[in-house]
């Protein structure tokens, strides 16, 4: 089987995909990008925490205009995963307003990105309706 790598550092592949946030050890603020210190309290120590795989759609937009090379339309969204807000696209749903409702239940899934010249497959994530 070809080697698979995640699209971003905070996606962990395996049997079930997981999103792993960096949580401030002092104030519990959560981040998905590389941090120098906590934006909330300034502390510099973080622990890795797994974000729940299921959540609800907090807000969305159906993006119909994008730079060259980005397939449209796509559903951009913010998903509330047990109190942690996550940015991601809604997938496995026709991108039409009547198919997406605020508060709808969704779960994390993987999305293929493509393979590089060495045959390594990059894998992204999205949220699909439950």
């Amino acid at each position: 089987m070809a080697e698979r790598i995640p699209l971003v550092d905070y996606l962990v592949l395996g049997g079930e995909p997981q999103l792993v946030a960096q949580e401030c050890e002092q104030c519990s603020a959560r981040f998905f990008d590389r941090r120098n210190a906590c934006a909330s309290c300034g502390a510099a120590a973080f622990r890795a925490v797994t974000v729940p795989r299921e959540g609800t759609v907090h807000t969305f937009s159906i993006v119909s205009m994008a730079p060259p090379g980005v397939p449209v339309p796509f559903v951009a969204a913010v998903v509330d995963c047990g109190g942690t807000r996550v940015r991601g696209c809604l997938v496995n749903v026709e991108p039409r307003p009547e198919n997406v409702t605020l508060g709808m239940k969704v779960r994390l899934t993987t999305v293929p990105v493509g393979a590089d010249s060495a045959g390594v497959e990059a894998v992204g994530y999205g949220f699909e309706p439950v």
């Binding site: 971003v8 913010v78 010249s117």
Partner: peptide, 21 residues
């Protein structure tokens, strides 16, 4: 032609349309 990680999310590809907008 091979994946390499960039930026503060360690992304191997542009995120527009893949991780929201």
């Amino acid at each position: 032609g091979t994946w390499s990680r960039r930026g503060r999310f360690g992304a191997v590809a542009p995120l527009e349309g893949r991780v929201g907008t």
